[in-house]
């Protein structure tokens, strides 16, 4: 069978390309909302952790955060996904996409937290002291002085976390979500030809990642231009 026959069989017949397009849509939706959830969780945890490290306040929340970080970073994301789907939401009827968003969001939050905490801790303690010496309270100093600088420093790392997350969602098929990877796999199971569907899946991921990387690059250049004033 030639390439064009194989191409027709895998993608054109019965509109099989739709498995890939719908899969990509699902992958992007899961990634987008998981990133948002991960950012919210990550910033929260980072602020609690750095507040504890700098002021020795919030001991109990800090302990909870450390437990969260240890568990999430110490176990595979597939296992977390399965536990959240079969154990936590086992007896509840919720959409699988929703479960995936929760699982990947919680997972990503742990990594975002450590990135952001590193960013906050990298800001010279003199900045905090300058803010406090003017009479701003801790929250105001964080909000207007520390966080804007910290976020600028970690923005590239956060974007990379998004890229990693996009690829990690490829295990969503474990709970029978028809994401991009699963879409390719379904075509393979129909046509029994693994090469083209899997190649197509890989190419689509690659293109999306390259696009995102380009965006990060542009962003990074803009930010460093600010420093060289």
């Amino acid at each position: 069978m030639g390439f064009s026959d194989s191409f027709r069989q895998n993608f054109i017949e019965d509109d099989r390309w739709k498995y890939l397009v719908n899969g990509l849509k699902t992958t992007l939706i899961i990634t987008l909302f998981a990133v948002l959830l991960g950012m919210v969780l990550g910033f929260l945890v980072a602020i609690i952790r750095s507040t504890y490290l700098r002021t020795k306040k919030l001991l109990i929340p800090d302990l909870i955060c450390r437990l969260y970080l240890t568990v999430i970073r110490g176990t595979p994301v597939v296992v977390q996904l399965l536990i959240i789907y079969f154990v936590i939401f086992g007896s509840v009827d919720v959409s699988k996409t929703f479960v995936a968003i929760i699982a990947f969001g919680i997972n990503s939050g742990a990594y975002v937290a450590e990135i952001v905490r590193g960013g906050i801790m990298s800001i010279d303690v003199g900045q905090l002291e300058a803010g406090r010496s003017l009479g701003l309270n801790y929250r105001q100093t964080m909000m207007y002085i520390i966080m804007p600088q910290a976020i600028k420093n970690v923005l590239p790392a956060l974007c990379n976390e998004c890229i990693v997350l996009l690829k990690e969602t490829s295990v969503a098929g474990y709970i029978a979500i028809e994401d991009l990877t699963r879409g390719g796999d379904i075509i393979r199971s129909i046509t029994f030809a693994p090469f083209l569907p899997l190649l197509a899946v890989a190419l689509i991921y690659l293109v999306v990642v390259i696009l995102l990387t380009k965006l990060v690059g542009i962003l990074e250049r803009r930010l460093s231009a600010n420093d060289r004033r």
């Binding site: 010279d124 003199g126 900045q127 002291e129 300058a130 803010g131 010496s133 002085i145």
Partner: peptide
């Protein structure tokens, strides 16, 4: 009470 530091601690952003 105003305070002035050795390393200025201006807000660079």
């Amino acid at each position: 009470m105003g305070m002035v530091f050795q390393h200025f601690n201006l807000f660079p952003h």
